[in-house]
Amino acid sequence: LTTMHYSDSLDTPRNKKFRLEYAKAFRMQPDVYAVQGYDTGLLLIKGANAVKGDLNNKPALYAAMNGAEIDSPRGKWKMSAAHNPIQDMYLRKVENKENKVIGIAQKAVADPATGCRMA
């Protein structure tokens, strides 16, 4: 048994679509790192759109990214005060060499604010 914020076997339309499109584009199955990279791109797009492409407008860019909700293959998430994802953690069980989700271990896990600030 393991816990993680993603599993290949998440049975959601968002995850199924992501996995299919990724496999078509790269001819391999995505892993947790592919999902995290995809989410990073979604977060950057939300920030860039909010400032109409003016990435020098850092206060507005950071505010937009801090307030963004990301509709991810791993489930919806947003940033904590410490700039880490507030996300579900899934309980997984290995069966036939595959991680199968057997439930949500913790809903909307968030870290405590650490006082960190974005420059």
Results as ranks from 00 to 15, higher is better:
residue 2 T to K: 06
residue 4 M to A: 13
residue 5 H to R: 12
residue 5 H to S: 11
residue 8 D to V: 11
residue 11 D to K: 14
residue 12 T to D: 04
residue 15 N to R: 08
residue 16 K to A: 14
residue 16 K to V: 10
residue 18 F to Q: 02
residue 20 L to F: 14
residue 21 E to V: 06
residue 21 E to S: 07
residue 23 A to C: 09
residue 23 A to H: 10
residue 23 A to W: 07
residue 26 F to Q: 11
residue 27 R to K: 09
residue 31 D to S: 09
residue 32 V to Y: 03
residue 34 A to R: 00
residue 35 V to W: 10
residue 36 Q to P: 01
residue 45 I to T: 09
residue 46 K to P: 03
residue 48 A to E: 10
residue 48 A to G: 10
residue 48 A to R: 04
residue 53 G to N: 07
residue 57 N to C: 04
residue 61 L to Q: 01
residue 62 Y to V: 05
residue 64 A to Q: 06
residue 64 A to T: 01
residue 67 G to H: 04
residue 68 A to W: 00
residue 72 S to L: 02
residue 74 R to F: 01
residue 75 G to F: 00
residue 75 G to K: 00
residue 77 W to F: 15
residue 78 K to S: 12
residue 78 K to T: 10
residue 78 K to E: 01
residue 79 M to T: 00
residue 82 A to S: 12
residue 85 P to V: 00
residue 86 I to S: 01
residue 89 M to D: 02
residue 92 R to Q: 08
residue 92 R to G: 04
residue 93 K to D: 14
residue 98 E to F: 00
residue 101 V to N: 03
residue 101 V to S: 01
residue 105 A to N: 07
residue 106 Q to L: 14
residue 107 K to W: 12
residue 107 K to T: 07
residue 110 A to G: 12
residue 111 D to P: 07
residue 112 P to V: 13
residue 112 P to D: 13
residue 115 G to P: 07
residue 115 G to A: 05
residue 116 C to N: 15
residue 116 C to T: 14
residue 117 R to K: 12
residue 117 R to L: 14
residue 118 M to H: 08
residue 118 M to Y: 05
